[in-house]
Nucleic acid binder design. Structure first.
Length: 153
DNA sequence: GCCAACGTTGGC
DNA sequence: GCCAACGTTGGC
């Protein structure tokens, strides 16, 4: 089983949006980066857990945990000319982009801020914290996962 | 709003 | 296949 960190802008789709969804479930679509696409398509499995991260906001940080409840399948927003994620290179016969479905597991009482994460020596090599890291989904090691969970306690 | 970092595009 | 230009991300 793998661990992940998934970024979202709280103004667009934050953890409270997810909490308000029927079944607290949502397709994670709109990813248009090949590296992340490969993880979505090949590596994110049912039962994997991910931190839900708020980015591009006043206080960025981890706000909770979600679970992958459906593994990679074609992102149909790429087929829809009306969607802002439309990509004519992707077809139903040969899909280019993928998504997974996530379900809310837990919203933290207190957000773990990016600033807090940076201050933890055990997290220095975390993918998220790498210089210039911009990927909307990044892998998290089991060790990092445990370390961060303790911060949430 | 600025700007560093970096992925993608497209001309050659 | 190189690489400059461009666009986007995202923290500050």
């Amino acid at each position: 089983m793998n661990y992940w960190l998934m970024k979202s802008e709280p103004d667009t789709f934050g953890i409270d949006h997810l909490a308000a969804r029927p079944n607290q479930t949502e397709p994670w679509d709109g990813v248009r980066n090949f590296q992340v696409r490969n993880w979505l398509r090949d590596d994110m499995k049912v039962g994997d857990l991910a931190f839900f991260y708020h980015s591009s906001c006043k206080i960025p940080g981890i706000t909770g945990i979600v679970k992958i409840i459906k593994a990679g399948y074609p992102d149909s927003t790429a087929f829809d000319p009306a969607s802002k994620y439309f990509d004519p290179r992707s077809t139903e016969a040969k899909p280019l982009w993928y998504r997974v479905d996530v379900k809310l597991v837990k919203k933290f009482a207190e957000m773990i801020t990016l600033q807090q994460l940076r201050a933890v020596p055990a997290l220095q090599s975390m993918r998220l914290l790498e210089r210039g890291s911009r990927l909307s989904i990044t892998p998290v090691t089991a060790k990092e996962w445990e370390t961060i969970l303790k911060l949430a306690a």
